[in-house]
Design a protein around this nucleic acid. Structure first.
Length: 191
DNA sequence: ATGAAGATGAAT
DNA sequence: TTCATCTTCATC
């Protein structure tokens, strides 16, 4: 893989979550050398009733209230782990949920951790991609610009599509899911 | 102490 | 469509 493109630093994430989310489409996410291109994300602004931080600071969402550029990892449905990138200024408590990546690096390790061969089933979904990359609760609060994380800016501007979010009951109609147009690696098709 | 809901995924 | 699985948070 060519690493000619820029590493995403804290400044990249220190902006509105609605600017950062679409710009993450096409970026490269690596964790301990395994990962791929981000093809689907969801924006969670603190004013959004569906955001974990909406009801105020708790033990679980504390990282969301910290500075931008850190990983917020939480347990979903008692079984899965989900990865977010904290954005905006400290105290804003807004983040982007990483929902799917197109596998590029460390595919053998991903298959081993996931127990499936089909590349479309490796990282297409927030729980799946965490399992494939080996991301878990112990990684909550880690900086995104230092190992084991490595995030690289996209070199071209891809075609981005939007739609309502997945698995949301409150504010389900808010179209803050962003995806790479035509990608077969999104967790659910855009329409 | 208890209970209901939950930013999911896999099987049926 | 059902269900596994369990943390989190509000309520009693």
């Amino acid at each position: 893989m060519r690493l000619t493109h820029q590493l995403l630093r804290r400044r990249f994430f220190s902006r509105s979550v609605h600017e950062v989310a679409p710009e993450l489409i096409g970026a490269m996410l690596l964790f301990n050398g395994a990962g791929g291109m981000i093809v689907e994300v969801e924006a969670y602004h603190h004013t959004d009733p569906a955001a974990h931080s909406f009801g105020g600071r708790t033990a679980r969402n504390a990282v969301m209230f910290g500075p931008a550029g850190y990983a917020y990892v939480y347990r979903s449905y008692g079984i899965h782990w989900c990865l977010n990138f904290v954005c905006e200024g400290e105290g804003s408590a807004s983040a982007v949920l990483i929902r799917a990546i197109e596998p590029r690096e460390g595919i053998a390790a991903m298959r081993r951790r996931r127990g499936v061969r089909d590349e479309r089933l490796l990282c297409s979904g927030p729980g799946r991609l965490c399992q494939a990359l080996g991301i878990a609760g112990v990684h909550n609060g880690l900086a995104l610009d230092a190992p084991p994380f490595a995030l690289h800016a996209r070199s071209d501007e891809p075609a981005v599509v939007t739609g309502p979010r997945i698995g949301i009951t409150k504010a389900a109609d808010i179209p803050w899911r962003y995806g790479l147009k035509g990608s077969p690696f999104v967790s659910k098709p855009f329409r």
